[in-house]
Design a protein around this nucleic acid. Structure first.
Length: 280
DNA sequence: CCAACGTCCTGCGTGC
DNA sequence: TGCACGCAGGACGTTG
């Protein structure tokens, strides 16, 4: 499940793979992946033909491909999305959703087994709606403990939030890029229970949590992300952060700090993992 | 306005 | 052995 570190890894590799290569054709093989516009197989192809990728960047878990004419392709990988680098004659992988062929014979494939991901096309200066509502990127220089004040109070109201901090961490409109894995890992590092109400976080909690978020995301980027099952880099190699996970996917194992058993609970319909002794 | 829940989708593990 | 079922989860739409 690509979260911020996995998407960051993929974007770096996409830049190295794709920037400046002339696109001769593009195919939309799964029309249901394209949202927002009613482009057809033909207009999708025309959108890319004769162009090249001038820049590729990440906002939260979204990838923006900037074409040289100012148009943009937005991609979200959902649960099982990935990009693969292939050469002329390579067989189509299963679940190929879209493909971008380059003049040198190579192509970039976009694969998504469960199709929770999405593609969007934007022409010239259209506002990118999918990025508009996103919260702060935790790797930006503006991210600090005060960024988590939104966890305590809603922007407008005075009432303290009752949603679990685990759920708040995954709310893309508050912080962009954290999913289920890094929510559990950051809360473990910060010593905070995932079920704790956002409104009950102290200033000290928010400082520790903000620091933990940055720490775990940066560490995972250094390991090229976490491969549990589906996530793969563009070169098909797995990320290696799985072995560094302290609690996610480790129910019943001893906590590395205190030795007590790691617990698994459902919060907001999602699995959260924590140490009942270290996290309060 | 805020929160909670159902929905989409496929592959894999479990139990009968 | 084979089948049915439950589970995994990001974002969005609907409901409370």
């Amino acid at each position: 499940m690509p979260e911020l570190p996995e998407v960051e890894t993929i974007v770096c590799e996409l830049r190295a793979q794709c920037l400046g290569r002339s696109i001769t054709s593009a195919e939309l093989l799964r029309g249901d992946m394209l949202k927002r516009t009613a482009d057809t197989f033909d207009s999708f192809a025309a959108f890319f033909m004769g162009r090249f990728f001038q820049g590729i960047d990440r906002t939260g878990k979204f990838i923006t491909f900037h074409l040289d004419n100012g148009n943009k392709l937005i991609a979200h990988l959902g649960m099982t999305g990935k990009f693969i680098s292939a050469k002329n004659g390579d067989p189509d992988p299963a679940h190929l959703c879209s493909r971008y062929r380059f003049a040198d014979g190579g192509w970039l494939g976009h694969v998504d087994i469960r199709r929770f991901g999405r593609l969007e096309l934007y022409r010239s200066d259209e506002e990118i709606e999918s990025l508009k509502g996103l919260g702060i990127d935790p790797l930006s220089s503006q991210f600090e403990a005060d960024s988590l004040l939104k966890f305590v109070h809603s922007p407008g109201g005075n009432k303290r939030r009752t949603r679990a901090v685990h759920t708040l961490l995954m709310d893309q409109s508050l912080i962009a890029g954290i999913g289920n894995i890094y929510a559990s890992e950051a809360l473990y590092l910060a010593g905070i229970r995932p079920s704790r109400h956002g409104g009950k976080l102290t200033k000290r909690d928010r400082e520790r949590l903000a620091e933990a978020v940055v720490q775990v995301l940066r560490a995972s980027i250094r390991a090229c992300g976490t491969t549990i099952s589906d996530y793969r880099r563009v070169d098909d190699k797995p990320g290696s952060f799985k072995e560094m996970l302290a609690v996610y996917g480790r129910p019943g194992e001893p906590c590395q700090a205190c030795g007590s058993e790691i617990k698994k609970v459902k919060i907001g319909g999602r699995s959260a993992f924590y140490c009942g002794k270290c996290q309060r």
